[in-house]
Nucleic acid binder design. Structure first.
Lengths: 198, 198, 198, 198
DNA sequence: GACTAAGCGAGACGGTACGTCGCGTCTTTAC
DNA sequence: GTAAAGACGCGACGTACCGTCTCGCTTAGTC
């Protein structure tokens, strides 16, 4: 019956905090991200942050969810050509992850994801795994572009994982990297349809 | 001309510090790892740490180098059967990374690697990438187990990367995971050796 | 024309607040007395307090006025024997001020009085100064128990002040203290009436 | 044998802190005195304060001891004329306590003394009670200026206490107040010296 | 053997950030 | 229009570590 007595949560404050978090995270990275800094940048009391979020991680996870840290979710399209589609998707991720202007941000995200489960899940989602990528792979399997027993989950992990390994190892960018990875993992593009084997 | 005047670096202290670092890292993780804590645990003055290491990361990197954090370097063997060899190697890594007793440590290592270049390189080395893994893959290529144009570097990244993605996503363990990954990435084991086709 | 629109001040709330103030003041002292604590203890919104009182001091002053902090006003009686009357009055104050169970409360009152004018006046009144004590002293002067030019105000201040000094200095209780003080300040009881000088 | 290992306490910091405490106390009073403010004013880390003092009170007590808050200890002199000596002493205290420029400071000291035992003792000492005042009163008793059974302790308390009561009650200054108090409490000056009685 | 250096344990120092408490104001809903 | 509830911006609390800087040793060459 009662519903809610007392003042309600300020949406203004919520947005200011998330935007400040994104800005500070981008500027200063995962370590060096401070609640005080966020509160000051958002023009908000620290208590307002502690009231609604358990930790720095929860803030970052929510930023990811709102698309304030990654440009948008990276989603593979479905044109019928699975290699081209995955190459495009992976290329977008790679460009972001290895662009000098955003590489540090990406590494910070990986660090945050490694330290916090919530962030981990959210980052996976933002990169397209598992859901949207799985969907695309299933469609490829159905179309006969992948073997019927191809372990889709593992293929997806391998694709994204390769990016993360490159990022951790500070491997510099290479234009064909996306294509190479896709062909490495999905196998080379069959030049001719199955009948060619005959 | 002057060789060295004054006392020399204490090896005792060096070892105590590295061991304390490993212990604290294992117990408390990458964040929550403090120089003061290490110094206290090692029975050492803080200055002795700052004198010889630039940062927490440098300490952790040296611990990795000394094998104090990971059980040993994960090295693929060469029995002639590349799939079996890589499966064994990957399984060892996966068991470590997903064992509840060591998963947190592994995640902390990934976080540290994402934040610090030195640690990143050291962790790659400890996992066998690039050097020893590349060697094994080259040998496989030479043996005709991989296509001549197989992108070895990308294959290696994909294998390790898949583990890291699983770890970040908190995917629970699965006994055949290593085998699935290897077959996903290297392709299915040919039923007959290459010569059979002739 | 209507004298009053809307709801009127809740006497229930007023009493709950004052009683909570007295209780919290007694328990926790002048510092550590918080509006939030009072509001919670009284089951009242903070605003209801701010609406009717300017400050913590005003609350405490009103508690004094209502006799919620000191057992009652300390009033000297008039039996004709000024020394006995003042000794009784002072003894009551001293017992309260130096009883271990109430000494802390009394000290808190002195602190509050020193910090806030309102409380200062209210505390003076509660101790009987100036009005009721002055009345008794005037009556004594009229009866010839005090010299005609005795500075009544100063005598009263000295009597109460001595208690406060003892309280501040944490002097422990002494049964004859009240009597000693009265005889110190009013001078020794003349053994014989004035005629004895003749 | 060793005595002291490690860096020693910085006297510079100690003095800066005490001076900052005195300055802030004078400016802002007992409440509104903050450790952060003191640390900032002293150019010192908060921890340096917490390392050496238990509380704000301890700081204030030490300031009193060092004479940084009261101009100096108020000490009665001994010219042989007890009434004149005590009047001069009390007048100095009264002038300080009721001067508009310092009254607030004095009230703050009383508040602090009421809340904290250490400060209480230190303030008593600074006002001359009990030691130096007792000495003067004993000398007066020995000289026959006071009755042999005069309760010296109570007389002293009454004199200082009267000042405190006036301060708490915000009584405004009056030039003859010191003289009136002395004559009220010690009794009127005998018109003739003791020898006249003989 | 005396005389430097440097290393070392200890720990004080000026700082930054933590997470909590209380302030006094404002906003919402209930009566 | 008063009241309970409670979110808000703010300021201070006392604590944990940071990285730097003395201290009083000890340890090793160099004269």
């Amino acid at each position: 019956m009662t519903g809610q007595r007392g003042a309600t949560r300020s949406e203004t404050a919520r947005i200011a905090i998330l935007e400040a978090t994104a800005a500070q995270f981008t500027e200063r990275g995962w370590d060096h991200l401070t609640i005080e800094g966020i509160a000051a940048a958002a023009g908000v009391g620290k208590q307002t942050i502690y009231r609604w979020w358990r930790s720095k991680s929860a803030l970052v996870a929510e930023c990811l969810l709102e698309g304030l840290l990654l440009p948008a979710s990276f989603l593979p399209v479905d044109t019928g050509d699975v290699r081209a589609d995955l190459t495009a998707w992976l290329d977008a991720i790679l460009r972001f992850a290895e662009d000098p202007r955003t590489a540090e941000l990406f590494r910070s995200l990986v660090a945050a994801a490694a330290e916090d489960e919530q962030v981990g899940h959210q980052l996976s989602d933002a990169l397209g795994t598992p859901s949207s990528l799985q969907t695309r792979l299933e469609s490829a399997r159905a179309a006969g572009d992948l073997r019927p027993d191809a372990p889709l989950r593992e293929l997806g992990d391998a694709l994204v994982g390769a990016v993360i390994v490159r990022v951790i190892g500070r491997t510099t960018h290479h234009d064909e990297a996306a294509g190479l990875l896709v062909s490495a993992i999905l196998g080379p593009r069959p030049d001719r349809p199955a009948g060619a084997e005959a």
